[in-house]
Design a protein around this nucleic acid. Structure first.
Length: 393
DNA sequence: ATGTGC
């Protein structure tokens, strides 16, 4: 007798990392668990693989279904790189730092025009447009430290003497609200691609992608304005999201969970604020890595763990300048410790593993000069700051 | 990651 039930074959996840790369057991368990979800066709851990909330970060999944919970709350989180008109030689980090104030508060420019430029409908979260947020998000001025592929650098129109601005941020409260609504209604279930619920999620997801991209652009615009300079965007990628792909003639869904795309040209893989970032060009056919690359160095210590480990030997003021000489603006103590260079794995190993696997080749290294995270907590809540002001009048 | 929490 032929039964109606289909046998779901269990796929074996792969991890792209050298044996000496330390990866937490919990991350591997999460990778294996996620690979068992119905309709999963391939799962790959990248060298920055580490545990997340239920699902691993630094991983990519190819599936017949759409898994919003796997994408997570920060839909569209990613990186964008600008070439500024600032020259490394004449840049004064201390003076620049003084000018960078209040980027946490709402932007006072023309939001309607900005939304129109980016094809965005208004959302309840738009007062956060142009704000960096917390966690590992940042805006960082960087100097090109070493050029490894002059031709590729020139093709990207990046001049070695000019400072770069790298912005890492996402969709803030918007992405979180989309995931929350999704989980409230459907739990963590995978969505059938042509269902109304999938179409609904994809529409919101794509909106969050645009919102996050517009957010990074506005963060850059505000920061550049404060410094009295201009810049041109050179690169932009997202590393949290899902997209339909043609996989050997079949339509499948590629989930990137803290994984950068390897099919959209060069990109920056950032280290911690105390290490280099790598501008790389993807290589290979994308088959083994599911068209993806590591999205950063990868967290070594969980959030909240760093302060206990570091506060005995490093005071907050010690963390304001890194080993590479970069200045750090972070007036939130917990965040200052959480995002300390020691909280991250070495970026060199991550890049080394990718190169050894034939997945990318380095174009240049970027050295942090000034990292902006957050000013004082009272400036963080847009609404509250305004209320305080109103009360004073 | 998050107007993150009563």
């Amino acid at each position: 007798m032929i039964t109606a039930t289909t046998t779901e074959s269990i796929i074996t996840p792969r991890v792209i990392a050298s044996p000496s790369s330390w990866i937490e057991g919990e991350a591997i368990r999460q990778l294996e668990q996620t690979a068992r979800l119905p309709g999963m066709r391939a799962a790959v851990g990248l060298p920055d693989l580490h545990p997340g909330k239920g699902y691993p970060i630094g991983a990519v999944f190819l599936s017949e279904r759409i898994y919003p919970a796997l994408v997570g709350n920060d839909i569209g989180c990613g990186m964008a790189l600008w070439q500024t008109e600032l020259t490394a030689r004449r840049f004064k980090p201390e003076r620049a730092a003084e000018r960078l104030q209040g980027l946490e508060g709402p932007w006072d420019g023309d939001l309607d025009a900005w939304r129109a430029d980016w094809n965005l409908e208004p959302t309840p979260f738009d007062s956060a447009l142009g704000t960096i947020g917390g966690g590992n998000h940042f805006a960082e001025l960087q100097v090109i430290e070493k050029v490894l592929d002059e031709t590729a650098l020139a093709a990207l129109e990046l001049e070695p003497e000019r400072l770069c601005l790298l912005v890492h941020s996402g969709s803030r409260g918007l992405g979180e609200s989309i995931l929350r609504a999704q989980v409230n209604q459907w739990g963590h279930a995978g969505l059938a691609p042509d269902s109304p619920e999938a179409e609904d999620y994809c529409a919101r997801h794509d909106q969050a992608l645009r919102w996050a991209e517009a957010n990074r652009a506005l963060i850059a615009a505000r920061l550049l304005d404060a410094l009295g300079t201009e810049a041109e965007q050179r690169l932009a990628v997202w590393h949290n999201g899902v997209e339909p792909v043609d996989w050997h003639g079949e339509r499948l869904w590629l989930h990137r969970k803290g994984a950068a795309p390897a099919d959209r040209g060069p990109l920056v893989i950032p280290g911690s604020r105390g290490s280099l970032s790598y501008l790389v060009a993807p290589t290979g056919d994308g088959e083994t890595s599911l068209r993806s690359l590591a999205h950063g160095a990868g967290r070594k210590w969980k959030r909240g763990e760093a302060r206990a480990r570091l506060s005995g030997r490093q005071r907050p003021e010690d963390l304001a300048v890194t080993a590479l000489g970069g200045q750090v603006i972070c007036e939130d103590k917990e965040l200052l410790y959480d995002e300390a260079p020691e909280s991250y794995k070495g970026i060199e190993r991550v890049i080394g593993d990718l190169v050894a696997a034939g997945l990318c080749h380095p174009i240049a290294t970027l050295c942090p000069v000034l990292t902006y995270k957050v000013r004082k907590a009272e400036h963080q809540r847009p609404g509250r700051a305004r209320q305080t002001e109103r009360r004073r009048r």
